[in-house]
Design a protein around this nucleic acid. Structure first.
Lengths: 359, 359
DNA sequence: CGCTGCCGTGGAAGCGCTCCCACTTGACAG
DNA sequence: CTGTCAAGTGGGAGCGCTTCCACGGCAGCG
């Protein structure tokens, strides 16, 4: 005689939720009709629909997603892939904004957001396997480094995918949402030239990130446009600490510069520190610009002039584009580029050091 | 004759992924044996196991989650519920840290993180329905406001749930992870008293959040401990702007205070502004403390002394606790409280204004 | 040497759902 | 009055998986 414990309900044990069958019985219709009534009510009489609706409320019926997804081959969930080490994630509000934006695009839908963060290469392959496994209907990838080959790998799976930030590898048609980093860099050069600075330098981002490369390109274009020489360029990793080292080098080799464009606000913060440590002032001796309009740009000792991009909007767009492509596969939408704007603050004001000029 | 289009593969059309059946055939065993081999290999001979393993690699087999979850009644995913308006999410690195921590706890597991953000009440009920629907095996709730009744509602569903931050409603046994906010408040009072400040005030957080209430309680205890009077208390909403208004009121009514404890760094920033605007200095005239060890505490015009809590650790703990409770239902673990620490910076240094004393 | 017990195995049932298909009905045209 | 057709319905198959159960084989024991 079998006396083993009821293993099969080790987790359930709660009151079993009503099935479609139960619903159908309660509504006095067949399973098929109940199903139709629940899914948009195509080819269902008004009475049947009403009866089912009533039963749904009465029973507190919630369709079983697994069962549905098993037959429809749709999961009603999408993945957000973040191929970044945690440090960045924690420091940078960027990711929070992206999540908020995507969530916004997803409300009114019953699509859920699954978060996939992969730090190590090991994680990467797991993530890829997961994506391949048909566990989600689509993916949004926050693209950053040249190294990660997400773009190619994902494109090969045929899974609908949208990139936020132009991916490095464009040897095939990927859909992405980005801001006009080239234009942003140009804005920076124009602004610094516009306030009369002539010996300009930039602390650029890593050369393996498209955003950094584009900003630098725009910067150069802007300088050329203003008839200025190209000036010194140092690279850092978009972090404050990285920028400190880069700025020290910069100032040591070019003590006479009067304007610096740091390709991120976090880096500008580091540059600011170095300038101060060298006994110089901002914007008195050196006008300084950041990029991103990060919260710290406003709270910095000298509030930073910076470039802003509509990040939330971008994320919302990415979400809705993905939804579209899932709905109509094969319709490869065109990339969308959002324009950037200058935000003027004290760090480039023409007036003398204005750090105490607050309300 | 049936000439209707193959609607059923409107979305698939990719090469159909191999099923367990295919795997079994390739390995030369039965479906049952293949299944056993895949799931830990209980009661499977070494040869069979090896054959299946080989077949998995050869076919690139990935189990269908929906099918599995349909029969096991497990989804291998958990939800992170964030019942907050987006503004907060975007500004506060807290959430990013929580996500990072939970993800950390989840690696090495095949459990996925589903994000549930609910702004409106409408969202709330949707979220609750989702949670009820058995779409996840458990939930982590970032608990904040008195108003949201997540705690009770969720407890009633019997879904394994961990709260990050002690929930307001404790009329039943909930499991949570929190930091010792009372202790943190006490630390603040002790420190300010310790550097000789005697006329102390606090800008407390909203009275409907446990963290705010606890910090205030600790603050009062600390003052009593130091033999100091309770001093003025004003409330704000944990934001910079909110604190500005509160601080103005405070200074207007109590112009002689020489120490302020703001219950968050963001609020401290606002207080700092107000103090400066009133022509006073920090820490010269007024010593100022924040709470959270937020990034801005370091970059503030006057770097802020603050209280730090091991947020990542807390999130990791929440994740692993949830995993445990899912594994062994009914084992209601005890709440875990992490201790807090003081981080000393210029805003409470005894020396004269040290805002320029950087390296 | 036969019996008990256990190990490894495969067949088969079903998880809850969607959707194909066949069927019944009633309206309407011929 | 019969034929046609669309609308609404229910039966049933099957999505890919886990797990119960029955069964053959083989070791250990009396």
């Amino acid at each position: 005689m079998n006396t083993s414990p009821p293993r099969s309900l080790r987790h359930a044990a709660a009151r079993p939720s009503p099935t479609l069958e139960d619903l159908a019985v309660a509504a006095g219709v067949s399973r098929s009709t109940a199903s139709r009534a629940i899914n948009g009510g195509d080819r269902v009489s008004a009475e049947a629909q009403a009866a089912v609706d009533r039963a749904v409320v009465a029973l507190g019926y919630i369709p079983n997603r697994a069962a549905r997804s098993l037959v429809t081959r749709r999961t009603s969930s999408i993945a957000l892939v973040i191929p970044e080490p945690d440090v960045r994630v924690m420091m940078d509000p960027f990711f929070a904004v992206v999540i908020t934006g995507i969530t916004e695009a997803l409300r009114e839908t019953d699509v859920q957001l699954v978060l996939l963060m992969s730090r190590t290469d090991d994680d990467s392959s797991r993530t890829l396997r997961y994506l391949r496994g048909g566990h989600v209907d689509g993916a949004i990838v926050v693209s950053h480094h040249k190294a990660d080959s997400w773009a190619r790998s994902l494109a090969e799976t045929g899974l609908p995918t949208i990139f936020i930030g132009r991916p490095w590898d464009m040897a095939f048609d990927v859909t992405y949402v980005d801001s006009d980093n080239v234009g942003g860099g140009r804005l920076a050069a124009r602004h610094l030239a516009g306030i009369g600075r002539r010996r300009l330098a930039t602390v650029a981002g890593p050369a393996d990130m498209t955003a950094a490369v584009d900003r630098l390109r725009g910067w150069r274009e802007g300088l050329a446009e203003a008839g200025l020489p190209e000036g010194p360029v140092v690279h850092a990793d978009f972090t404050t600490n990285g920028a400190v080292a880069a700025a020290r080098r910069l100032l040591a080799e070019h003590p006479d510069i009067d304007g610096i464009f740091a390709a991120s606000d976090l880096m500008a913060l580091g540059v600011l520190d170095v300038i101060h440590a060298a006994g110089m002032t901002v914007p008195g001796d050196i006008a300084l610009m950041g990029y991103d309009n990060h919260a710290v740009a406003e709270t910095a000792p000298t509030p930073l002039t910076t470039i802003t991009q509509p990040m939330v909007e971008m994320a919302v767009k990415a979400g809705s584009m993905l939804l579209e492509e899932i709905e109509a596969p094969g319709s490869h939408p065109e990339p969308v580029i959002y324009s950037t704007e200058l935000v003027e603050r004290a760090s480039t004001s023409v007036a003398p050091t204005a750090s105490a000029a607050k309300a």
